[in-house]
Amino acid sequence: MTAVFWAACAALLVSMLLFLLRALLGPTVYDRILAMNGLGTKTVLFVALLGFFCGRPDFLDIAIVYALINFVTTAAILRLVQHARLES
């Protein structure tokens, strides 16, 4: 099971790398927001996985915070970008 856990962590890390590349490359702001949102979900899973593997179930609290904050941030940024665009 341990090996599977490490492999899973590594796979999540690699997928986070690709998400990060998309966030760095853009080209539109929406691509970046999408990448950030996806990265947030991956982070939630990563933290939950780590919590189980390290025997620290209290990590799940952090995972919940991530899940909440990720949605709030994505929604807030989207609305703010829309405001900026519509005003122009």
Binding site: L24, R32, M36, Y66, I77, V81
Partner: peptide, 22 residues
């Protein structure tokens, strides 16, 4: 682009928080 920089800063915080968890 400052919007891009801000989003990247958010991702930076996300990754840092993951590092702290680790």
């Amino acid at each position: 682009n400052l919007y891009a920089a801000t989003i990247l800063l958010g991702i930076y915080s996300l990754l840092m928080a993951l590092t702290w968890t680790l």
